[in-house]
Amino acid sequence: MAQPSSTPPDDNKGPNGPRRDFLLIATSAVGAVGTALALWPFVHSMNPAADTLALSTTEVDLSKVAEGMSITVTWQGKPVFVRHRTADEIKQAAETPMADLRDPKNDKDRVQKAEWLVLIGVCTHLGCIPLGQKAADPKGDFGGWFCPCHGSHYDTSGRIRKGPAPLNLPVPKYTFLTDTSIRIG
């Protein structure tokens, strides 16, 4: 039976072979790269939009926060803990040996003024909000915060001491506007 005329000739093996191979590979490569690039707008559309990114700032009045008390404010949809630490708590945080820390950071590098500790109140394990802001809350084995979700303990500098969380509670960017007010962000 004769070959139907529409069957493509197997020319890649003929004298023009290398040229055809080159054309095929080059065209396919350009097509593949083009398709991959076309995917980017779709992927990137899921990243934070311009209005979400527009840096929000939050101002906090510290004058009403007595020593030993804490307040929680909202910044970028997340809770920020501000604690007015007692001399005892500061001493505890400063004297902890680095060897006891999972994520070793000096307390003095985590504060601008030793009595004011400002933290993003989101557990670095899986994102729950640790307890310890209210007087009646459990504060964990190290006097700071305790995350009830999977049992992470943070100390009076917000550093991770026990439990599954890998990192310290992060310190957001903030500036003292006056002696008794800060701006976060």
């Binding site: 934070p48 939009a49 899986l126 729950c128």
Partner: peptide, 24 residues
Amino acid sequence: VITNLFSAVPVVGDFIVTWLWGGF
């Protein structure tokens, strides 16, 4: 909690989580 599971991915974890959320 579940989206935060992806923050365990080394290096790019936090970018993945922000991408999943479309915010912070």
